[in-house]
Design a protein around this nucleic acid. Structure first.
Lengths: 156, 156
DNA sequence: ATAAAATATTTCAAGCTTAAAGTTTCGTAC
DNA sequence: GTACGAAACTTTAAGCTTGAAATATTTTAT
């Protein structure tokens, strides 16, 4: 997946393949840097941060299935991460009146406060890591990725 | 990390943040699709495919440390993946004459044949998943990502 | 009302991942 | 040539990840 430097294959489709490899390497590199900083600065992980970010945007709470769909990860995966966040007091599960299969998951006050701090640092890190991308280029790149989104995101 | 739709925050740096989120969602979505197909079609995993792809480009073999640096993953990680590939007969470790700490890792004939088949399918999948991206747009996007690479890849 | 299908979630096994600690081997300075 | 630090790997513990199986609850069809 992360093929790279040396040869430079050509032929039909090679440009798309090369694009995919660049895309993957860029996101892996940035992701690794963010993971390391989250660990060092806040003693947390990327998956925990992701879940908290999703919940921060939904003060009324989210269902487990909403979380897993939004985060693009499996159902069982979210269970474990939420379990750990609950045991750390950052997230709470609330039984619902109507449907007893589901529970609303939301940030606790502590979780919300904790996330606000991390989010500010996170945004600054992105600004630093993508510093050489001008705001205008960023908008243009975002636009290109957005316009192709329907191609790979079959559902959205 | 994978924040998304609803609100549309603005302010300095928000464009870069939005770019990062798009980048991450694009690569995660495509990655998930590839993982699923590798599993279904070839009963293998993305990490195994990555290792084999790296080795395929280096017929003379690679050191474990070369592999982990190239693939952007930790040293210990590669050990486990290579162990499994060895036990499947797709990869071989060869002791070196000079330095007894290291071993050259390379594809076996079976591994090489197996990879060639998967690589063809893989390239076709990418062509399909990125089908709406014209070859020209692909080259342009690749160029933009490449020109910003030094920003996030401190080493290369 | 009852059975069957659908939904929401958790559990499980296997594998991936990292950071840190441990092992072996090498190079180099005395 | 001995000791010391560096280098290449492996091992370990904890956590992430998936797909599939298991639970529990709700909905739908009869």
């Amino acid at each position: 997946m992360v093929a790279g430097p040396l040869p430079a294959p050509s032929g039909p489709g090679k440009d798309r393949l090369r694009l995919w490899i660049r895309l993957l390497r860029a996101s892996r590199t940035i992701e690794a840097e963010l993971r390391e900083r989250l660990k060092k600065e806040f003693d947390t992980t990327l998956p925990r941060f992701d879940v908290m970010a999703a919940l921060f945007r939904a003060p009324e709470g989210m269902l487990m299935s909403d979380l897993s769909r939004f985060l693009l990860v499996s159902n069982g995966n979210v269970t474990g991460i939420v379990d750990r966040l609950v045991s750390e007091g950052l997230v709470a599960r609330a039984r619902r009146n109507g449907d007893r299969r589901t529970s609303m998951v939301r940030l606790t006050d502590e979780g919300s406060k904790s996330f606000a701090t991390m989010a500010a640092a996170h945004e600054a890190w992105i600004g630093e890591l993508l510093g050489k991308v001008s705001e205008e280029d960023a908008r243009r790149l975002t636009g290109m990725l957005t316009s192709f989104r329907s191609n790979w995101e079959g559902r959205e």
